[in-house]
Computed example of a mutant assay.
Amino acid sequence: MSTFLFLYRGYVTPTPEIGRAWMEWFESVGDRMVDSGNPLSGGAEVTPDGVTELPLGPDSLTGYSVVRAADRDEALALAATNPMVTSVVVHELARM
């Protein structure tokens, strides 16, 4: 099994229906969920040139989870079932 970071992109104002869809998705993932993560609020990007505020919007990173999957294909298939707003960015976590 490999471990994958799911980064959720996109923001809409939460509704009870959205919350229910996420809870149902977390339940469907079951024991493959390593860390259900947390929602992210507006952030900031720090570069050598300074700090840029990152407001919530369609391109914002808005949360993360860590899941186990047999391989990348299984992780991508699982991400496709997520009640995403815009997209789910999937990265395999390197073993160190």
Score class of each variant (00 low, 15 high):
Met1Lys: 08
Met1Gly: 13
Ser2Val: 10
Ser2Ala: 14
Ser2Trp: 09
Ser2Cys: 12
Thr3Arg: 11
Phe4Glu: 07
Phe4Ala: 04
Phe4Arg: 06
Leu7Asp: 05
Arg9Pro: 05
Gly10Asn: 01
Tyr11Leu: 01
Tyr11Glu: 00
Tyr11Gly: 04
Val12Trp: 01
Val12Thr: 14
Thr13Gly: 02
Pro14Cys: 01
Thr15Asp: 05
Pro16Asp: 05
Glu17Asn: 06
Gly19Ser: 15
Arg20Tyr: 06
Arg20Asn: 15
Arg20Phe: 10
Trp22Tyr: 14
Trp22Ile: 12
Glu24Thr: 07
Trp25Thr: 04
Phe26Pro: 04
Glu27Ser: 12
Ser28Cys: 06
Val29Cys: 05
Gly30Thr: 06
Arg32Pro: 00
Met33Tyr: 04
Ser36Asn: 12
Gly37Asn: 08
Asn38Trp: 07
Pro39Ile: 02
Pro39Met: 01
Leu40Trp: 06
Leu40His: 09
Leu40Ala: 08
Gly42Met: 00
Gly42Gln: 00
Ala44Pro: 07
Ala44Gln: 13
Glu45Pro: 03
Glu45Tyr: 11
Glu45Phe: 10
Glu45Val: 14
Val46Trp: 03
Val46Met: 06
Pro48Cys: 10
Pro48Asp: 08
Pro48Gln: 03
Gly50Met: 08
Val51Asp: 00
Thr52Val: 09
Glu53Leu: 13
Leu54Gln: 09
Leu54Asn: 06
Leu54Val: 01
Leu56Phe: 00
Leu56Val: 00
Pro58Glu: 14
Asp59Met: 11
Asp59Lys: 08
Ser60Phe: 00
Ser60Gly: 08
Thr62Trp: 01
Gly63Pro: 11
Tyr64Gln: 03
Val66Lys: 03
Val66Leu: 15
Val67Cys: 06
Ala69Asn: 05
Ala69Ser: 13
Ala70Met: 12
Ala70Asp: 12
Glu74His: 08
Glu74Thr: 11
Ala75His: 09
Ala75Phe: 11
Leu76Gly: 15
Ala77Gln: 11
Leu78His: 11
Ala80Trp: 07
Thr81Pro: 07
Asn82His: 14
Asn82Met: 04
Pro83His: 05
Pro83Tyr: 07
Pro83Met: 09
Thr86Asn: 05
Ser87Arg: 11
Ser87Cys: 08
Val88Arg: 07
Val90Glu: 08
Val90Trp: 07
Val90Arg: 03
His91Asn: 03
Leu93Glu: 05
Met96Asp: 14
